[in-house]
């Protein structure tokens, strides 16, 4: 579904991705992990075509994405920071995206689930961070896209909304979607993710299931396993 081969990207002198290769060939939830500034967002944005790689190849659904845009019909994206055109109301924003995508969505159901009804006529600039994130979630999930890319979806969410989000991810997985998610919340990874893609120093350091990761690092707890990954040669002690 997603095939990344030898992807390189630098911003000026800063090399962010140094030959990233991985492939995702089955549906499920994939967690992209790595410390701050490890290139998670850059990687996701290159898949979306928002960041142009210096070299390397990217395929989505079997076709190279270079200079193509149609493939994004099949991708939903939840950006890290929920920033929207400030002059629009929530309702107008949703209508606009529906219009641009030219598709029917299930926005009514999602608005209800996240309790956004009373915010529909509010301007986006007047919403709190958490509420914006809920709008973000509605926008990402309202189309039945096969691939869902979520960059820090939990940012600013209250516990109730967080539970709802987890349920939503679970439902989407059952529908056979491929979900890519970045997060720093390990409990979320443990709950929803099947496979982990671990970025370190601009390269894929590890790709495999949670069990494989635990086996490789001899750590039962995911957080400790991750920490062990961050320390080279397994010299990590606690």
């Amino acid at each position: 579904m997603i095939q990344v081969t030898d992807l390189n990207k630098s911003f000026g002198k800063l090399e962010v991705l140094k030959g990233v290769s991985f492939s995702i060939n089955r549906p499920g939830v994939f967690a992209v992990l790595g410390h701050n500034g490890s290139g998670k967002t850059t990687l996701l944005k290159t898949i979306l075509g928002m960041v142009i790689p210096n070299n390397g190849e990217l395929q989505v659904n079997g076709a190279a994405i270079k200079r193509s845009w149609e493939y994004r019909k099949d991708i939903a994206y939840l950006p890290q920071i929920a920033r929207f055109p400030e002059n629009l109301t929530v309702n107008e924003l949703i209508k606009m995206i529906l219009d641009i995508r030219n598709r029917k969505g299930r926005e009514v159901e999602l608005i209800q689930r996240f309790g956004l009804e009373k915010f529909l006529d509010k301007k986006l600039s007047d919403l709190s961070g958490g509420t914006r994130q809920k709008v973000n979630i509605v926008l990402a999930f309202m189309f039945d896209a096969n691939i869902c890319i979520m960059d820090e979806p939990t940012a600013g969410l209250d516990p109730v909304a967080l539970i709802e989000l987890k349920k939503l991810i679970e439902e989407e997985r059952e529908k056979g979607k491929t979900i890519l998610i970045t997060t720093h919340i390990m409990s979320l990874v443990e709950e929803v993710a099947e496979e982990i893609i671990f970025l370190l120093d601009g390269k894929i350091h590890f790709q495999g299931t949670l069990e494989e990761m635990q086996k490789q690092t001899n750590e039962k707890d995911l957080e400790h396993a991750i920490a062990a990954m961050l320390v080279p040669n397994g010299t990590h002690n606690h």
């Binding site: 845009w69 493939y71 950006p79 920033r83 055109p85 400030e86």
Partner: peptide
């Protein structure tokens, strides 16, 4: 000022 709007559009299936 419209950077947010542009970013939102860029993630949609629309040509640059």
């Amino acid at each position: 000022n419209s950077r947010e709007f542009t970013e939102l559009l860029l993630s949609q299936p629309v040509k640059r």
